[in-house]
């Protein structure tokens, strides 16, 4: 219940955040909504020496539409995304996913950037961001770079983010035919398995498919075999079922815990792939 002592700093700009982080050596961590970090600190599973509060950096806030894409600041809360008219109109899967995270209070506080940086293997957002091929905009001392979500999540709680970098925003092309389907872990309500499907449809034909998965393995990733199985196909119950059937085939190191064995999780990957694709196709 009680975290270790730490120093508190507050940044008012992205650059200040980066320099404060640099100053703190390897002791520093960014604090935005704190809803991934603070629970760990209270259990003393994370003991940073310096917390740099980035919640008041104006550049990290806001949801904007630009050149046919949506950009969401890293500091935008789940509740803001869930209730954003813009997102709900252009890319409802993102709002729906945000509305599935935690509970109302957690959504009022937790942020998109925090969720991505923390990269909990059972978090909801990563699946959707992977499926959307969202770009994660990152700034470091050397300037800006962008990473595709599919490459951003590298391992358990490990992402493509250097010690001195900050996530500023996420940008993606909105998708109409997209859905996120999730099996709730009944205690935490994290995803035992969550699958996001983003389809480019032409009539009944799927021109291309992008599938992101969370909960099943150490980090969110694409289901490439399902993507190719769907691409170019007319989506019928049979083609969807056939694609879903192979959904777990290429997964390695599937998570095992009290709530689900590997065998069950693999089957749930199939089940929720089918559900997500069906739902995405039917929109």
């Amino acid at each position: 219940m009680i975290p270790q002592e730490f120093q508190y700093r507050r940044a008012t700009s992205i650059d200040e955040a980066i320099s404060l982080l640099k100053e703190s050596g390897d002791e520093g961590k960014f604090l935005a909504g704190g809803h991934s970090l603070v629970p760990l600190m209270k259990l003393r599973l994370s003991e940073p020496g310096v917390l740099i509060d980035i919640s008041r950096i104006p550049q990290l806030s806001g949801i904007t539409e630009k050149d046919g894409t949506i950009q969401i600041g890293a500091g935008v809360t789940h509740a803001e995304v869930a209730s954003s008219d813009l997102v709900r109109r252009l890319c409802p899967v993102v709002s729906e996913c945000a509305a599935e995270i935690g509970d109302p209070q957690v959504r009022n506080r937790g942020t998109l950037g925090g969720s991505l940086a923390h990269a909990d293997p059972a978090a909801d957002y990563p699946a959707v961001m992977v499926a959307l091929n969202a770009e994660v905009h990152i700034k470091g001392p050397g300037g800006w770079r962008a990473v595709k979500s599919g490459d951003f999540f590298q391992d358990l709680f490990t992402v493509d983010l250097a010690e001195d970098e900050i996530i500023a925003a996420v940008q993606f092309r909105p998708a109409r035919n997209a859905a996120y389907a999730k099996l709730h872990q009944r205690a935490s309500h994290y995803a035992l398995v969550g699958v996001a499907a983003v389809l480019e449809m032409e009539g009944r034909t799927c021109r291309s498919a992008s599938i992101g998965i969370t909960g099943a393995t150490g980090h969110a990733q694409h289901l490439a075999n399902v993507e190719s199985a769907l691409s170019g196909k007319e989506l019928t119950p049979e083609t969807i079922a056939a694609a879903a059937r192979i959904a777990a085939d290429d997964l390695e190191e599937v998570n095992v815990d009290l709530h689900a064995s590997e065998e069950y999780r693999r089957d749930m990957v199939r089940v929720f792939t089918k559900r997500a694709v069906e739902q995405a196709a039917s929109r």
Binding site: V38, K42, Q105
Partner: peptide, 9 residues
Amino acid sequence: KSVKACTVF
């Protein structure tokens, strides 16, 4: 906004 005060410094 409703917030859990145990998870905010």
